[in-house]
């Protein structure tokens, strides 16, 4: 459904591919870390001056230790000056991981060329991926 929605709005194939990938990874992140309760996915297009911006946001409840680990990972990722170098290091480290890949969010930032932000409130985490998009077909 999200893919269909984005396909109708995004004119350039590479941009659509980046948005699909980021949405997929964020949703899978929710599936992996959710501690139950309501999960939300929000995809929004807006204009920042003349530039179309896409924003993909998920929100879900996460248990204590998992929340701390996820937030540590997000902070390290957001502070990394070179997203591609961070992603490459995460990829190398993933080879020896038994559980999970730890790659999804780093992939969004490096491969998807998106900015990541997050906020935590009462055990609930909201993660947002945002990027400029070259070509958007606005309705109306």
């Amino acid at each position: 459904m999200v893919r269909q929605f984005c396909r109708e709005l995004i004119g350039d194939g590479d941009g659509l591919s980046r948005v699909n990938m980021a949405t997929h990874e964020l949703v899978e992140n929710v599936v992996k870390y959710s501690a139950g309760g309501m999960c939300e996915l929000r995809v929004e297009f807006r204009l920042d001056g003349p530039t179309p911006i896409v924003s993909i946001e998920t929100a879900n409840d996460v248990g204590g230790e998992a929340l701390e680990a996820l937030e540590r990972h997000l902070v390290a990722l957001q502070q990394a000056p070179d997203p591609v170098a961070f992603y490459d290091r995460t990829i190398r480290a993933s080879a020896s991981r038994r559980q999970g890949s730890g790659l999804g969010l780093a992939r969004i930032r490096a491969e998807g060329e998106m900015e990541l932000s997050h906020r935590v409130a009462g055990g609930r985490i909201t993660i947002r991926a945002e990027s400029a998009i070259r070509e958007v077909r606005w309705a109306g």
Binding site: M21, H24, E25, E28, I91, S94, S101, L103, R107
Partner: peptide, 11 residues
């Protein structure tokens, strides 16, 4: 499409 967990199997 391939997600990051599948990607990790190639790593």
């Amino acid at each position: 499409f391939m997600n990051s967990s599948c990607f990790k199997a190639f790593v």
